[in-house]
Design a protein around this nucleic acid. Structure first.
Lengths: 125, 125
DNA sequence: GTGCATTTGATGCATATGCATGTAACGTCT
DNA sequence: AGACGTTACATGCATATGCATCAAATGCAC
């Protein structure tokens, strides 16, 4: 790999690093301040509701998410503690858990969605 | 903002989120395992050495970095504890501190640089 | 069926982070 | 010179994260 290719690669990475942190930090702060939701909590809730499914297995919801399994587990636990999702046993496979958005979860998500989109538009347009 | 524009925006954000986390997580793990350096520590050391300056004020080094002031302060503190940088008083402005890479810092950086570039190339090419 | 690897989710632990705040030095204005 | 706002760093605190590990249920080979 040539020196200039390296430089390009590093520059690309630093852009990614900076851009991500700007957006993530701002997004997390806004969501937290205005809706009491962390970034990961919103992401999980958003994906759950946008899936159109009434309930998803933990594993299905975790799929495509950027978190480690443990961090995801705790994220859902926080959502549950906040009353925004519920968990129920899956009879087909008793290792698995279903996650469902509660009514409170749906309305919180609806409120937060505007903030989310606004911050994204501000940074990524 | 139309629905499809929103979708596009969200998709863009999720790509960024996923991509960043993949690279950052992998990079941090490799740097930590192979060289005992965290991602932020490497970034700080890299920027210090690449600057070509013998010493930089904390504030100058922090500039353009993605961390909060407190996180940056602790990152440099870790580098110092590891013997990879030194800090010295700035006589012009006694609030400021100079940061300098030690010999150990320079050689550690040289070792880690390959790993860094390799991981970046693997993810961003 | 039995044994064993695999899968699913939770948890202990160490650590990095952001926010708020503290401290000291600087600059300015009067 | 004195008062006051600003700047440069450090630190207390709460929290989110990853890794390793654990427990339980499942599947698979025999």
């Amino acid at each position: 790999m040539s020196g200039s290719e390296e430089q390009e690669l590093v520059a690309k990475w630093r852009d990614l690093l900076t851009c991500y942190n700007n957006v993530a930090c701002d997004l997390d702060r806004e969501l937290q301040d205005q809706h009491g939701l962390g970034l990961s909590e919103f992401e999980a809730l958003d994906r759950l509701i946008e899936s159109g499914q009434d309930k998803l297995r933990m594993h299905e919801l975790a799929e495509g998410m950027y978190l480690s399994q443990s961090a995801f587990s705790r994220t859902v636990a926080r959502l549950e503690r906040a009353g925004l999702v519920g968990r129920s046993l899956c009879m087909d496979d008793r290792r698995a858990l279903f996650v469902t958005a509660t009514e409170a979860g749906r309305s919180r998500h609806a409120e937060a969605r505007d903030t989310h989109r606004k911050v994204l538009a501000h940074h990524l347009s």
